[in-house]
Nucleic acid binder design. Structure first.
Lengths: 110, 110
DNA sequence: GCGATACTAAGTCAAATGCCTTATCATTCA
DNA sequence: TGAATGATAAGGCATTTGACTTAGTATCGC
């Protein structure tokens, strides 16, 4: 059984690699074929294809075969799940710090 | 040599595990000791401590020994780096879709 | 059809991950 | 002082990861 299985597990794992983040960045500009995506990386194509597979299994990207090329695109929904989790936690921590701060201010005042 | 080394690599890798995300969530409410953090997880303490080590090496949390307990807290700055990256990419993708949409609207109109 | 192009499948390998147990260190408190 | 507590060190083991090479499939253009 894989160590990562829940959507957020898969998404964050996919994002933990610089090659895969670069692919995400590229795809934010629009769809692209596998070889086009692979070109900037000094990596054998099968190795690169595995990164795409990780991204696709995470749901962050989707792909479709057209002729002999495979075209990849971002899937904003799954990306948003991960981003939303981060924003929610960030806010929770920030709000706690705000409460702490105002508590300290009140203590000093009193 | 570790596969993950850059700050974002380490941060996203740290977040790819549900135990570690739960720790982050807990710490968003305030600092806590190692055993307090470990309590909800049916896991040997050394195993749990390794998760904390991953989190600390990623810079997402910091810790300090007080007496025989170690107290952990969030480090918002590192967390923000990862969250900011996600927000930036999300916006880039959204803006592209906006451009695409207005292009299509103009085409239909013309 | 035939060669070139674009992937994909299959197998190898070193290293990392995640869990465990056992043993040890450090601090607190009776 | 000496036992209990909180954490850490050390080592083991199955699985996963990330890279490679070699070989195969499917499509396109001549």
């Amino acid at each position: 059984m894989p160590y990562h299985s829940a959507p957020l597990d898969l998404a964050f794992h996919a994002l933990s690699d610089p090659t895969r983040r670069a692919v995400i960045s590229r795809l934010a500009e629009g769809e692209a074929s596998v070889s086009t995506l692979a070109a900037p990386f000094g990596m054998a194509l099968p190795s690169f294809a595995q990164h795409l597979r990780v991204l696709e299994e995470s749901g962050l990207i989707a792909s479709e075969k057209r002729g002999r090329s495979r075209w990849c695109r971002l899937v904003p929904a799954r990306f948003a799940e991960a981003a939303d989790w981060m924003e929610a936690e960030r806010r929770r921590a920030a709000e706690r710090l705000d409460r702490l701060e105002s508590y300290l201010a009140k203590t000093e005042e009193g």
